[in-house]
Computed example of a mutant assay.
Amino acid sequence: MAGFLLRRAGGILATLLVTSLAVFGSVHLAPGDPATFLLGGRSASPEAVAAIEAQYHLDDPLPVQYVKWAGGVLTGDLGRSVQFRQDVADLILARLPTTLWLVGYAALLIVLVGLTLGALAALRPGAVDRLVLVGTGVATATPAFVAAIGLVSLFSVRLGWFPAFGNGSGLGGRISHLTLPAVALALTFTGLLARVTRASMLEELGRDHVEVARSRGIPGSAVVRRHVLRNALGPITTVTGTVVAGLLVATSIVETAFGLSGIGQLLVGSVTVKDFPVVQAVSLLVVLAFACVNLLVDLVHPLIDPRLSHAKGAAS
């Protein structure tokens, strides 16, 4: 286990290094200049532009800028935002709770609804299965921004059940404000998880040991719980981990549509004005979340199927 964790930690560090290089290079090579944003469209003398570039180290060669930025990241200094004139770490910490609430809410909906629909479709062939397949197909094909427009139009404008914008305050207010964004964010991923759950459970239902268990008179609920669902959890867990990690990326569209002051909206606004430090820091945060969730899934898999741990031990 110690060797496995060390190898995965090394892989995460290598991934972060490659990602930081890719993000740093792509952001700086894109057209536009942060100094133009800082000047607010006003004309300025070359001396004033040079002073702004020197203040934010924009006049240094790209390798020098990267080394300075990477060195600051290693010491906990993510730089200073060009747009907000604040430390990037403070900006992220202030907006992170909203994004975590949204991601957690959406993940809960995805797991509960996706697993329920997938299991229902696998265990109820016929009309129920076809209905779930059609519904999940529509959900999977619906982009988050389209779902956001439809949800706001129906539940906010016409029915007035939920607010359309803002983060809300307090537990009840936050849940009320995040319900529609969470549904819009979870819709596509719920359909995906339901289909994976259905396919995995159908595969397990056709196994010989399931037929043997049924022929021995074991109740159907026990057969599903002990022999079908548990063995089907492998691919379901993998997809769930990928989906939860992907929610951090998808939040940018939903947060912008619903006016939520989260990490996603911060990233979109920072890309527009080429706020280099913010874009780089948020990108690294998303990649780190992906890597940590994948590591957690790998650690959970042997608990679901002990044969995986035995196979690793035999291979080593």
Results as ranks from 00 to 15, higher is better:
Ala2Ile: 15
Phe4Arg: 09
Leu5Thr: 00
Ala9Arg: 05
Gly11Trp: 08
Ala14Met: 15
Leu17Asn: 10
Leu21Gly: 14
Ala22Thr: 12
Val23Ala: 07
Ser26Pro: 13
Leu29Val: 11
Leu38Tyr: 04
Ser45Ala: 14
Glu47Pro: 05
Val49Met: 13
Ile52Phe: 03
Gln55Gly: 09
Tyr66Phe: 10
Val67Ile: 11
Gly76Trp: 03
Ser81Asp: 04
Phe84Asp: 15
Gln86Gly: 12
Asp87Gly: 15
Val88Ile: 04
Thr98Leu: 14
Thr98Ala: 15
Leu100Phe: 11
Trp101His: 13
Val103Thr: 10
Ala106Ser: 10
Ala107Phe: 02
Leu112Glu: 11
Leu112Gln: 11
Thr116Ser: 10
Ala122Asp: 00
Leu123Glu: 08
Gly137Glu: 05
Ala139Val: 05
Ala147Lys: 01
Ala148Phe: 07
Ala148His: 06
Ile149Asn: 08
Ile149Cys: 10
Arg158Tyr: 14
Leu159Thr: 07
Gly160Pro: 04
Trp161Phe: 09
Phe162Leu: 07
Pro163Asp: 06
Pro163Gly: 07
Ala164Trp: 05
Gly168Lys: 01
Gly168Ile: 02
Gly168Ala: 05
Ser169Asn: 15
Leu171Gln: 04
Gly173Trp: 06
Arg174Gln: 14
Arg174Lys: 14
Thr188Ile: 14
Leu192Asp: 09
Ala194Val: 00
Ser200Phe: 02
Ser200Gly: 02
Met201Arg: 02
Leu202Tyr: 05
Leu205Cys: 07
Gly206Cys: 03
Ala213Gln: 00
Ser215Cys: 13
Arg216Val: 09
Ile218Val: 08
Gly220Glu: 12
Val224Asn: 03
Leu229His: 01
Arg230Asp: 03
Asn231Tyr: 08
Thr238Ser: 12
Ala250Glu: 08
Ser252Thr: 13
Ala257Thr: 05
Ser261Trp: 13
Ser261Asn: 12
Leu267Ala: 10
Gly269Val: 06
Ser270Asn: 03
Ser270Arg: 00
Ser270Gly: 03
Val271Pro: 03
Thr272Cys: 14
Phe276Met: 08
Val282Arg: 02
Leu285Thr: 01
Val286Asn: 02
Ala291Asp: 01
Leu299Pro: 02
Leu299Arg: 02
Pro302His: 06
Asp305Glu: 08
His310Arg: 15
His310Val: 14
Lys312Gln: 13
Gly313Cys: 14
Ala314His: 12
